[in-house]
Design a protein around this nucleic acid. Structure first.
Lengths: 209, 209
DNA sequence: CTCCAGATTGACTGGTCAGTCAATGTGAGG
DNA sequence: CCTCACATTGACTGACCAGTCAATCTGGAG
């Protein structure tokens, strides 16, 4: 068998290494951990890491690409539904928040080590990262065309604000400055959509274009 | 003379090193550059860096604290003015965007290497970073108390969304996915406030708490 | 001019760690 | 039982680089 097909009962060591890497990268950071930490965490020999991955960096690239593609697919799928823009955006916020809830370490690694790492992994994956912005912008653009969203705010700009707000929430959880209960996660989904779509103001004086 | 008081005509080598560090950290990233790169960029000997700074990390800490304190002071000063919340938030957005415009390298270093670096500098400076969130939340809180902002969205939550949206814009500029003209910077200030305060929707159906 | 404190220099060291590799294990097919 | 391909092991190496330090410079005070 090759690395991809794990027999039932046999442990997929490649997967074991990836999972261990998530845990170690999240706990110590990509730059502050050693490959041997990952191997130890996975319970495999040092050299096996290099049997499955060309380099330490390739491990992180793999983790990012795997997860990011799932998110891109989710955004595409949400956009394809026949729903008002606000509900589509709720779907996107929901997916991202649930991703964090389901695997906070992985999302932490992706945000901390890739999404904002302009000089290393971020630069390598910028096109993939951008696809997410474009997907969200597409949702906003459709709403603008329909007239349900203002035309004064460009869609790509709105997408950046929306994505930025969500990523900041995750950052708040990562840094432990926001509470992390199931209830909070659910509340956050609604609040972020309300904040961005409905705005913060209660009374609506004329809005400028 | 000590390091602090530079005589006119004499170059402040400490400052020279800090400025060189901004340039080098921005170009190559903190982890991917050597102390000798900083020394070379500053045009001083390797050892002089260690005359003024205890370690490579202390250089980054110094850069961050210097600049962040200026921002905290600015937020405090803006909050003290007698203005509607929306204009206060415009003031904050304006200050941050202008900070980037004035010294993009420094802001890039702060965002990329500190603000999101949960396992290294971010953890060290989390209290300072938090002060910014709290300052913004204070502005929102006042507006909520006055009734000009909705009460359904908690102030600390709104602050995170607002700050996140701005930081995402800077990230867009850093990654070169958003245009970087003076006109765009000015536009961005207004748009981010409009997006967060006024929301994206054109018609206002009932808003849920 | 002499002295001294602080500024400046850059060669060197000690530790760290990513990546290599030769040896060994393992299990499926013949 | 044998063979072979692939999995697994972990000691080792070569490069890299943060931080040290002894030597040298500089400029003001006496």
């Amino acid at each position: 068998m090759t690395a991809s097909a794990a027999k039932p009962g046999a442990v997929d060591k490649r997967r074991l290494i990836l999972d261990a890497a998530v845990s170690v990268f999240a706990r110590r950071g990509f730059h502050h951990c050693r490959v041997s930490d990952v191997a130890d965490e996975a319970g495999v020999a040092y050299g096996l890491v290099y049997h499955y991955f060309r380099s330490k960096e390739e491990i992180l690239n793999t983790l990012f690409l795997e997860r990011w593609q799932i998110m891109l697919d989710a955004i595409g799928e949400i956009d394809a539904r026949d729903l008002p823009a606000r509900e589509k955006l709720y779907g996107v916020a929901s997916f991202i928040v649930d991703s964090y809830r389901h695997d906070p370490d992985l999302m932490k690694v992706i945000i901390v080590e890739v999404t904002r790492a302009a000089n290393s992994f971020g630069a390598i994956h910028i096109d993939k990262i951008r696809e997410a912005y474009i997907g969200i912008a597409g949702i906003v653009e459709t709403a603008r065309a329909e007239g349900s969203f203002k035309s004064g705010i460009p869609a790509d700009f709105a997408a950046m604000c929306f994505y930025g707000a969500i990523e900041q929430l995750l950052t708040g959880w990562i840094f432990e400055v926001l509470p992390k209960t199931d209830e909070e996660y659910e509340r956050a989904k609604g609040l972020v959509v309300e904040a961005i779509c409905g705005g913060l103001e209660s009374a609506h004086n004329g809005t400028s274009a």
